[in-house]
C-alpha cells in the first residue's frame, strides 16, 4: 500500500476529509450529519493517513494522543450538561445564545458543544483503535 501515488495524494484527501468532517459535525443540528458521523469521517482520515505514511508520522502530526482527545470529548460533553446547573435547571438543559456579528448571527448552544464532544470521542477512540492496529501490523512486517 506504500505506493507513490497513494502517499502523494493521501495528505490532500485527508485534509479534505478532516475539513469535511468538521463541516458535517457542525451542520448536524439542522441538516444530516452530527458528531457521530463527523467523528467517523475524521477517524477514517487518520486511518488512511496511517496506512499511507506510517503510524509514527501520524502521531507526530496529531501532537496529541487520540485517546486524550476522546477524554477531552467526554469532559466537554459532560461539562455542557453541568453548565445548566448554574441556571438552576436540571442537568443537561439546553442553553442558547445568539452571537451577533453585525450582518449575520451565530447560534451558540450547549447541544452544539455537546455534539462537538461526541465528535471528539468518536474521532479519538476510533482513530486510537485504528492506529494501534496499524502499529501492530508494522511490527509484524
Amino acid at each position: 500500500m506504500n505506493t507513490v501515488i497513494f502517499r502523494t495524494t493521501a495528505p490532500v484527501v485527508i485534509a479534505i476529509m478532516l475539513v469535511f468532517s468538521v463541516f458535517i459535525c457542525l451542520r448536524g443540528h439542522n441538516e444530516p450529519g452530527g458528531g457521530f458521523i463527523g467523528g467517523l469521517i475524521a477517524a477514517s482520515a487518520i486511518a488512511i493517513y496511517g496506512m499511507a505514511s506510517g503510524v509514527d508520522r501520524v502521531r507526530r502530526a496529531m501532537r496529541v494522543d487520540p485517546l486524550a482527545l476522546a477524554g477531552f470529548g467526554v469532559l466537554l460533553a459532560a461539562g455542557t450538561g453541568v453548565l445548566s446547573l448554574f441556571t438552576a435547571s436540571p442537568f443537561m438543559t439546553g442553553i442558547w445564545y445568539e452571537l451577533n456579528l453585525g450582518e449575520s448571527s451565530v447560534a451558540l448552544s450547549t447541544p452544539m458543544f455537546f455534539d462537538i464532544g461526541v465528535y471528539f470521542v468518536v474521532f479519538g477512540s476510533v482513530s486510537a483503535i485504528a492506529l494501534a492496529l496499524e502499529a501492530g501490523r508494522e511490527e509484524d512486517l
Binding site: 450529519g33 442558547w96 461526541v118 468518536v122 477512540s125
Partner: peptide
C-alpha cells in the same frame, strides 16, 4: 432549535444516554 430531528434527539432530548454511550466508546478504546 434544531431542524434535524434525529440529531436533536441524540444531543438534546436523549443527551444523557448519548453521554453514557460516548463514555462506553472511550472505555472500549
Amino acid at each position: 432549535h434544531g431542524h434535524n430531528i434525529v440529531n436533536v434527539i441524540l444531543v438534546d432530548y436523549r443527551g444523557f444516554d448519548t453521554l453514557g454511550e460516548i463514555s462506553v466508546l472511550m472505555a472500549t478504546g
